[in-house]
């Protein structure tokens, strides 16, 4: 099923990996949940996305991992206007983006090892080319002893780390995380944040949605702050 990993149209001429120009979004005929967002994310940057529940954090991430479409404005990913990307090319764009979902979205019929290897299998890679990498990654997130475990048998923190491992296994250029510390204790939250910082140091652009103000304050990273679907802060801490 592997075609051309970069077959997403125009070359990445824009230095920003993400560029929003006056982007709005709504679900069906409901009122806009995101309003007139304009911002850019540079390659290798780390941003928190903050805001109260219902402010639009998850919706913003949905736009970025192409699970929803803007109702207005222009959204560029890797220098390309997303509205011009043909449907058959969208999968190749998605493979450049890793996502840690708030509800994990782990496949219950697959072991931790299989869940982690999923994006590589979708890319069409042969098992021998990645089995050791997957094992190392699971060890790195602290799941070396749980590789054979099914998701239903994992604790909340273990599921969270497994979801992170799956999101980063194919070295995505952008890593999106929706409340990745929402289901774990503060100590585990800090450990997860360190994982993301480490990935960011390796060059991955990270967007980390959270309502944990303490975590944001302790990290010192820049923030995209949303209020009622509008961006009220970009780059600076609120």
């Amino acid at each position: 099923m592997s075609r051309n990993p970069n077959a997403t149209g125009a070359p990445d001429a824009d230095p920003a990996v993400v560029r929003f120009d006056d982007v709005s979004m709504r679900y069906g005929r409901a009122p806009e949940i995101l309003k007139d967002l304009t911002f850019t994310l540079a390659p290798g940057s780390f941003h928190f996305v903050t805001g109260a529940s219902g402010a639009g954090k998850t919706s913003l991430l949905k736009l970025l991992f192409l699970a929803a479409k803007p109702s207005k404005g222009l959204m560029h990913l890797f220098g390309q206007d997303v509205s011009t990307v043909a449907r058959e090319d969208q999968p190749f764009l998605r493979r450049r983006i890793g996502v840690v979902y708030q509800e994990f979205k782990l496949l219950e019929h697959m072991s931790a090892f299989d869940n982690t290897a999923l994006p590589l299998r979708i890319e069409g890679r042969k098992p021998d080319s990645y089995r050791n990498d997957v094992a190392e990654l699971l060890a790195w997130v602290g799941l070396k002893h749980r590789m054979h475990a099914m998701p239903a048998t994992l604790a909340g923190g273990e599921k969270q780390r497994l979801a992170i491992a799956r999101a980063v296994v194919n070295r995505p250029e952008i890593l999106l995380a929706d409340e990745p510390t929402g289901n774990v204790d503060p100590e585990m939250g800090l450990r997860i944040l360190k994982l993301f910082v480490e990935l960011n140091r390796l060059g991955t652009t990270v967007l980390f949605a959270t309502h944990d103000e303490d975590l944001v304050a302790r990290s010192g990273m820049p923030v995209l702050h949303l209020e009622n679907g509008r961006l009220t802060a970009h780059g600076a801490r609120p």
Binding site: M1, E88, P91, F92, L118, I122
Partner: peptide, 11 residues
Amino acid sequence: VLHLSGAEDGF
């Protein structure tokens, strides 16, 4: 999950 992980529709 397959769709969002980059699997093609045909696959």
